[in-house]
Design a protein around this nucleic acid. Structure first.
Length: 550
RNA sequence: GGCCCGUUGGUCAAGCGGCUAAGACGCAGGCCUCUCACGCCUGAAACGGGAGUUCGAUUCUCCCACGGGUCACCA
């Protein structure tokens, strides 16, 4: 007990004076939350967001890793709500966390608002106040914690002085004024009703270094903590540090995965675990997601980057599996290779390992997301993609939802647009983009750009010629033969190879003729097979659209 | 500023003392009996800098630079 001016008896008296109503002991809680009965090697992981109402990519990123590790090892993955800061609390935030993560297929075995096992609950930190206090009381009795009466101004003053002296700022050593308070002084302040916090009495010197083994980063050098960190705030609620130690011990978390911004407070946590007589969990600190801004890499920011919010992707209609898959490529460097080899493999089949998690901050790359997304969607059946579009439209695009009402027709359209068998097309990136891509299949959204090749008069002639021989009953080959005939009648090349070898020998080619038709019918220059489209649209509509262009 | 983490093509990255330094996205070019998409082929493109250890450093050590993080009664 480093320079504690109080005697053992005084410590105990103080603990009792401060927390007379706390009668449950650490032993009681140890029994209440027994060791989990899990198979060998099972990992217990968790995500512990604070209910600020903002769920971002980083949350999903770690949740994905936590979930994989737990499920893969037949362990437990739970949700704990860190609502110790009432200033940041937002109503409905917990529901938002669950629903948003749920959208991306993340579910919990236990935790807040789940119907899983409640043995280790409650999972809201606010509701665990008495648990924390039992441990605070014990620490007090052991002389490992003490009340501190410093005001915010006092602390500012201390920091200011330290800054002048070029010392490390913080409440430690001789700067920890209240650390040396006598029993009488403490009692006097307490009786006067002076507000206080409880601080841990650090035994570290802030100098000694030791090597810590991080599950992701490997060996890292840490300096022993020497700060008398606040463990219980003046409102009687613990700080993150303390709640983390208590909860993760009592809930028997085996692996804590968190952002590397926590690395600097690791010494505090380690000391806390030691002080409390707990075995510390394994830690894995992962790098942050970054973005490129004005040529420099920086952390994704809540205020400046809408793409940080998960809601952003949901709104744009990215398929949840696409976002997950992309995140997985960032999460585990060997995932992509595996995915290429196992194109039909499910995410769950991939053997995820924390050791393969990246060391440095990955840049979130939308083009790459889009590519992954196209692939993911191309693996969906038309039916599945239809259901996805429908659900999205139902939430975000009511007009589009109306168009989807004719399911039979839309499925046929999707069949065409997605291609069949091995020849899958990869046109679709997300639902909002699909609305654009599909626009010409519906009269309501058909807005032709009419960007024709060739001159207006020749184009009109081609269209007129086409209508003369057009027969809806023709099969694709017959149809195309007729298109070729038209091309030939204008002296256009009908053999594309010959045309490409000597383009100047012809005034145009069959591709120009097809293009004129394509633009007339769809309003676009790039579409899937035109004959099929016309079959789908039906004779009336196709002919009408062509006539309109003559 | 102190402390901590990081630095391989534009991006994500493999690499773990000896390699023509993988692969993916993107980009450029080409091929695929009408465009596009798909697919395939080809190409351009990288070890931040400086010392040291070593027969030999992308890989190990140190220094520097740069990037990031953190120093709250926020998590």
């Amino acid at each position: 007990m480093s320079n504690n001016p109080l005697t053992q008896a005084q410590c105990e008296a103080l603990a009792e004076k401060l927390f007379p109503k706390i009668t449950k002991t650490p032993e009681y809680y140890a029994e209440l939350y027994p060791e989990r009965n899990l198979p060998e090697g099972a990992q217990v992981t968790r995500i512990a967001p604070s209910p600020t109402g903002f769920i971002h990519l980083g949350n999903l990123f770690s949740a994905l890793a936590d979930e994989r590790i737990a499920r893969q090892s037949k362990g437990v993955f739970y949700l704990r709500i860190e609502d110790t800061d009432l200033k940041r609390k937002v109503d409905g935030a917990v529901e938002a966390v669950i629903s948003t993560l749920g959208y991306f297929g993340i579910t919990f075995d236990e935790g807040a608002e789940t119907d899983g096992d409640q043995t280790y609950g409650p999972f809201y930190q606010r509701q665990r106040e008495l648990v924390y206090k039992a441990y605070v009381k014990r620490l007090l009795a052991q002389g490992l914690a003490y009340p501190c009466f410093c005001t915010a101004e006092d602390l500012d003053e201390i920091r200011e002085k330290q800054r002048e002296l070029k010392l490390t700022p913080g409440y430690y050593g001789e700067w920890a004024r209240c650390r040396g308070l006598s029993y009488d002084e403490i009692v006097k302040k307490l009786d006067a009703g002076t507000p206080y916090v409880i601080r841990m009495r650090s035994a570290g010197d802030g100098v000694q270094k030791y090597v810590f083994r991080d599950s992701i980063k490997g060996e890292i050098s840490v300096t022993a903590n020497n700060r008398d960190e606040v463990i219980l705030k003046s409102d009687g609620i613990p700080t993150y540090h303390f709640a983390h130690a208590i909860d993760d011990h009592l809930m028997h978390t085996t692996l804590v995965l968190r952002g590397e911004e926590w690395l600097s407070s690791l010494p505090i946590h380690l000391e806390l675990f030691r002080m409390l007589g707990f075995k510390a969990p394994k830690y894995g600190h992962h790098a942050q997601l970054m973005k490129i801004d004005n040529g420099t890499k920086r952390k994704l920011s809540k205020r400046k980057d809408p793409e940080l919010a998960l809601e952003y992707y949901r709104k744009l209609g990215y398929h949840p599996l696409a976002v997950k898959t992309y995140l997985m490529t960032l999460l585990n460097s060997n995932f992509e290779e595996w995915w290429l080899k196992n194109p039909d493999g499910k995410l769950e089949d991939f053997k995820f390992s924390i050791g393969k998690m990246g060391q440095s901050g990955a840049l979130f790359d939308i083009p790459k997301l889009d590519d992954v997304s196209k692939t993911v969607i191309s693996k969906l059946t038309s039916e599945e993609f239809y259901d996805f579009l429908l659900e999205w439209a139902n939430n975000y695009e009511p007009d589009f939802e109306k168009l989807l009402a004719d399911k039979e027709y839309v499925i046929k359209v999707l069949d065409l647009c997605m291609g069949a068998g091995k020849k899958r097309r990869k046109d679709f990136v997300c639902a909002s983009q699909a609305v654009e891509l599909l626009s010409y299949y519906f009269d309501e959204t058909f807005k032709p750009e009419r960007d024709f090749p060739l001159t207006p008069d020749i184009r009109a002639k081609i269209l007129t010629d086409f209508l003369k021989t057009y027969d809806y009953a023709d099969d694709g080959q017959t149809w195309f033969a007729k298109v070729k005939d038209i091309a030939a009648s204008y002296g256009f090349a009908t053999d594309m190879r010959a045309y490409k070898e000597n383009p100047d020998a012809f005034p145009g080619s069959v591709s120009d003729v097809a293009e004129v038709l394509r633009v007339a019918v769809t309003g676009h220059r790039n579409t899937p097979d035109l004959w099929s489209i016309m079959q789908l649209l039906g004779k009336e509509r196709s002919v009408a659209r062509i006539k309109e262009c003559i």
